[in-house]
Nucleic acid binder design. Structure first.
Length: 440
RNA sequence: GCGCCCAUCGUCUAUCGGUUAGGACACAAGGUUUUCAUCCUUGUAAGCGGGGUUCGACUCCCCGUGGGCGUGCCA
């Protein structure tokens, strides 16, 4: 029998990182086995399951390349079938009608009264508990609507799901789900429970911990392949020392047996590193397009720079970019005279006595140059340093901060030539302004 | 409270009884002699505690401890 797995999120408008990780594992498992990866939209909560929320879900999956092999199944369309199964369960005695808390009649699935209930989880191994520790549970509310457990199981069955790969938080539910399968008289799928993704405190990773939704990472300029790779390595490892893996490599290496069963902390720094790795392997035109887009969002227009300058900016800034969201902030001084000054850099490099006056001399020296190039500007600066008995660093750093506002960035002379003599000298001449704007 | 699950460097992980416990991120140091980034080299750093089983345990078992999850007419 060929493998069929599903991702069954309830659309809430945002897709949590832990949920999408489950989707990734399902996808990887299906692709590895040559089976099918399906999507079931659990949209029974009509309040939250808006068309907009469903669009978000679909677009997130597309962004990450999680392609489903069949059209999505919408759970809300299947209520009649869920209810029919419940009725059959009542008829067979597997479920009973009860009136709990005087809310009217609901349908309750009965758990075994004695013995053990158990199953073998494909990642956690054998899981069992005594029947006394289980409780009967409602499958149809008194208002006639099916409960999650019922709908979930019936749909899994009807969709021919062979493996249910989902979050750890569902292990307890599995006993209930198995009971419904038993009542239906059908073979249950294999269950596999994935460890949770937690924060630095060991608590479930949430919005409070920073970016928690796929959309957040998308906005911040992370690459889908990087996020995919990073998430795949949370709770799974290929078994060798590879960290950066292509989709195909992940597909080839993936197995449930290699999934861990302990929780994984979400380490943003490693994601950042990995994103940088992917980013530097992107074709130049792709990176350029994204640079333009990011700048535009921030109100900066790459088109205002001459082509040669723009290309130089890319040469210098691409290797210094780990995530696209940083682009506008890192590049702003190429586009406007209104670039911000980093107070720390100003205090260290511009505020010391004599620096501002020295920068006037630098401007003068630059203006006297027949041509303003990487070589000539360096020669001029070195000459001035020698004339004043100053180490080159005493000039380089203040100049950098004066013309860019920050203490790091491209090689200084590349930076200067990209900016052009006019802007450089103007910025040097009004370096004192920076002292006021960042006054301490 | 009760039930279930989990436990290797700060973090992600390898190890499926015998290893100097490996890799990656992060961090530190050095080189590429202006910064930052990239790149290269090096370094710091781990088996929760206690009992067993075994010739031998990170690895198997038990008990603690810690953490997570569950315990809804939520999903």
């Amino acid at each position: 029998m060929s493998v069929r797995v599903r991702f069954a999120p309830s659309p809430t408008g945002q897709v949590h990182i832990g949920n999408i990780r489950a989707a990734i594992f399902n996808w990887l498992f299906a692709r590895h086995a040559g089976g099918s990866f399906l999507l079931r939209v659990e949209d029974t909560d009509r309040e939250r399951s808006t068309p907009e929320a469903i669009r978000t879900l679909l677009s997130v999956m597309e962004w990450l390349g999680l392609d489903a092999d069949e059209p999505p199944v919408y759970q809300s369309t299947r209520t009649a079938r869920h209810l029919a199964v419940a009725e059959a369960m009542v008829a067979s005695g597997a479920a009973t009608r009860e009136n709990r808390d005087g809310k009217g009649e609901c349908i309750v699935c009965r758990m075994p009264a004695e013995g053990k209930v158990e199953f073998t989880d494909a990642v956690k191994g054998r899981i069992r508990k005594r029947a006394e520790d289980t409780q009967d549970f409602v499958i149809v509310r008194s208002d006639g609507s099916p409960v999650f457990h019922l709908a979930n199981v019936v749909d899994d069955h009807d969709m021919g799901i062979t493996h249910v790969i989902r979050g750890d938080d569902h292990v307890e539910n599995t006993f209930k789900h198995l009971q419904i399968f038993k009542a239906m008289g059908v073979e249950p799928p294999v269950y596999a429970h994935l460890p949770m993704i937690v924060n630095h405190m060991g608590k479930p990773y949430s919005k409070r911990d920073g970016a928690a939704f796929v959309g957040d990472f998308q906005e911040q300029g992370y690459l889908p392949d990087a996020l995919f790779n990073f998430l795949a390595l949370l709770g799974w490892a290929p078994g060798d020392d590879r960290e950066i893996l292509s989709r195909q490599e992940m597909i080839d290496a993936f197995s449930l047996e290699r999934c861990k069963s302990s929780a994984a902390r979400f380490d943003l720094r490693k994601l950042l590193w990995m994103n940088g790795e992917y980013l530097r392997n992107l074709p130049r035109p792709v990176v350029e397009a994204e640079f333009r887009r990011r700048l535009q969002i921030a109100g900066l227009d790459a088109g205002t720079l001459p082509d040669a300058t723009w290309n130089g900016v890319l040469d210098q800034m691409i290797p210094r970019t780990r995530v696209f969201g940083d682009v506008p902030g890192n590049c702003i001084y190429f586009f406007t005279e209104n670039y911000p000054f980093d107070p720390k850099a100003v205090d260290k490099r511009l505020r010391p006595d004599g620096v501002v006056a020295l920068l006037q001399e630098v401007a003068q020296a630059f203006e006297a140059l027949p041509a303003f190039t990487v070589e000539s500007s360096e020669t001029a600066l070195r000459a001035l340093g020698e004339a004043r008995g100053l180490g080159i660093g005493m000039l380089v750093h203040p100049v950098r901060v004066a013309v860019s506002g920050v203490g790091e960035g491209p090689g200084l002379f590349e930076l200067l030539t990209l900016l052009g003599r006019e802007r450089v000298c103007a910025r040097l001449r009004r370096a004192d302004k920076a002292l006021q704007t960042t006054a301490n």
